[in-house]
Design a protein around this nucleic acid. Structure first.
Lengths: 240, 240
DNA sequence: TGGTATTTGTCCGTATGTATC
DNA sequence: GGATACATACGGACAAATACC
C-alpha cells in the first residue's frame, strides 16, 4: 500500500517504533537529519511525523524535538478512529469467528425506518440481523441496513462472510467515512435470546453511519455488544 | 486562539459549515479559488481543509472536489478524539455542574498502585475520589491519581472546581496527549452508594492516561459513568 | 472516442518565526 | 547571543483522477 514517499517514511518510522529501535520516551532524530537520511525534504518527513502524532506514536515539542510515546497495544481492543471489520478484528486477535444471518429481507424505507436509519422514505434497502461469534461465543448482534442501489446483489452467503470484502472486490465500493455513536442500553428480548450476557442487564450499542467516496451514506448499522467482551481505545493530541 | 493563518481559515470554513453557508453534501469552492479569496497559497488552504477532514466536516475526492459531510451534533455527546473537561462538557450542554470530593489523600505508589496506574513504585501521588453532578444528578465517580511533582500544591478546593484550569493558569502545565480505554463493568458498592443507576447493574468505565508536553504521564483517572446519561461519538476517515 | 481544462495529491526548495538549549 | 529544532507560509512543478466538450 505505501506507494508515496511520505507513506514509506511513515511505515519505516512506525516499524522502528514498534520494534523498539526507537524506544518509549526516546527522542527520534531531528527532521533535518531524517530528511537527509530519506533523501527528501523536511516537509515530507513532517508529513509522515504528523500521521504518527495523530495515531499516538509520537509527540512533538517546538524547539526541542520529537518523542516516542507509543506503548504496546492490548489485545481485544477496538480502536476508535480506525475502521476495522469484524473479520479483521477476529484475525488480528487470533480468534475463530463466525457470522450467523438470522434475518435477511428487502425493505423499502417508510417513516419508521427513516427514523432509525436517516435514509429518505422510499429508499430500497436490505435489512439484516446477524449474530457474531468469537470462538463460538455470541458477542454481537448486528442490525444492518444497506442501500440496495449501492450494495447490489447481496446474498445471505455474502453476509455470512464479509460484506465489505464483497463490496471492495466485486462492486469497487469503499467505505470512506464512518460516524459512530456509542451508548449503553437495557437488553431486549432479542439480545437475551441470542447473546451470552453473563448477568449483565445491558448491552453496548454502537451505531455506525457509513459513507462511500461519493459522500452517500449507504449503511446504517447498530451493533449490540455483550459488555464483557469489548474494549474501545482512543488516543488524542491536544492542539494549541 | 486562531493566531495562525491556517487556523483562521479553518475557523472560517468551520463556521460557514456549521451555519449552513456551505450545506450538507454541497461541494465547497476549489482550493485554488479559496487560496485567492483568503490571499494565501494553496498549501495553506489545504492545511485547513485537512483539519476539517480529520474532524468529519469535509470529505475530499481526488480530481473532483471537497464535499461537506457535516451534520449537526446531538447534545450530551462525549466526543472521542477531543479533550474536554467535565466543566467544559457541562457548559457546552448548558447544564449545572458540581463536583464533590469524597476522598483526598497523599500516597506513595506501591506495587498495587503501580498495577492500577502504571506509575513506578515510589512515585508520590495524590489520590482523589470525586462525584460529578449534572443538574444535581450524580452521573460520574472519578478515581484520580496525579503525580505530586507535577501537579503541585493541590487542594480539595481546587479539586472541587477544575484541576486543569489550575494546572494551566497556576502551574503552566498542559495536557497534550490522552490515551483512553473504555469498558463496561458491573457496579461496585461505591458506585451504588454515590450514583443514581436507574436499574442498571453496570457502569461505563473510561480509563485515561494523560501526558504533559514533556512526555511525562502525570495522571491516571478512572471515570465511572452511569450508563443512561452519556453518548460517545467518533468520526473516522479511511485513508487510502 | 479523445483531447483539454479543472481539481486534488505529492513533493520540492526556500524563507522566516519561535521555542529550547 | 548563537546554534538547533520545530512551526508556518510561500511559490512552483508535476502526477493522477475527474469533468466537459
Amino acid at each position: 500500500m505505501p506507494r508515496t514517499k511520505f507513506m514509506d517514511i511513515y511505515e519505516d518510522l512506525k516499524d522502528k517504533i514498534e520494534q523498539n529501535v526507537f524506544e518509549y520516551q526516546q527522542m527520534i532524530p531531528s527532521e533535518n537529519t531524517l530528511a537527509k537520511e530519506y533523501g527528501c525534504t523536511r516537509n515530507t518527513v513532517r508529513r509522515a511525523i504528523a500521521e504518527l502524532v495523530a495515531r499516538g506514536y509520537l509527540q512533538t515539542k517546538h524547539g526541542k524535538g520529537v518523542r516516542v510515546i507509543y506503548q504496546d497495544f492490548k489485545q481485544n481492543e477496538y480502536m476508535f478512529g480506525e475502521t476495522e471489520t469484524f473479520k479483521e478484528f477476529a484475525q488480528r486477535n487470533h480468534k475463530q469467528h463466525r457470522t450467523e444471518v438470522v434475518l435477511f429481507e428487502e425493505v423499502t424505507a417508510d417513516e419508521e425506518i427513516q427514523g432509525i436509519t436517516s435514509m429518505p422514505v422510499g429508499t430500497e434497502l436490505y435489512h439484516l440481523q446477524r449474530v457474531r461469534y468469537l470462538d463460538e461465543n455470541p458477542v454481537i448482534i448486528d442490525h444492518n441496513y444497506f442501500r440496495r442501489d449501492i450494495v447490489q446483489f447481496l446474498t445471505k452467503e455474502i453476509a455470512e462472510d464479509s460484506i465489505y470484502e464483497y463490496m471492495e472486490k466485486e462492486l469497487n465500493q469503499r467505505m470512506v467515512t464512518a460516524k459512530r455513536q456509542m451508548v449503553v442500553e437495557k437488553t431486549t428480548d432479542l439480545d437475551e435470546k441470542y447473546l451470552n450476557l453473563e448477568g449483565y442487564n445491558c448491552v453496548v450499542v454502537v451505531t455506525s453511519y457509513i459513507y462511500n467516496e461519493d459522500g452517500v451514506m449507504f449503511e446504517r448499522t447498530q451493533s449490540r455488544h455483550t459488555p464483557g467482551n469489548f474494549v474501545f481505545f482512543d488516543q488524542t493530541q491536544q492542539r494549541k
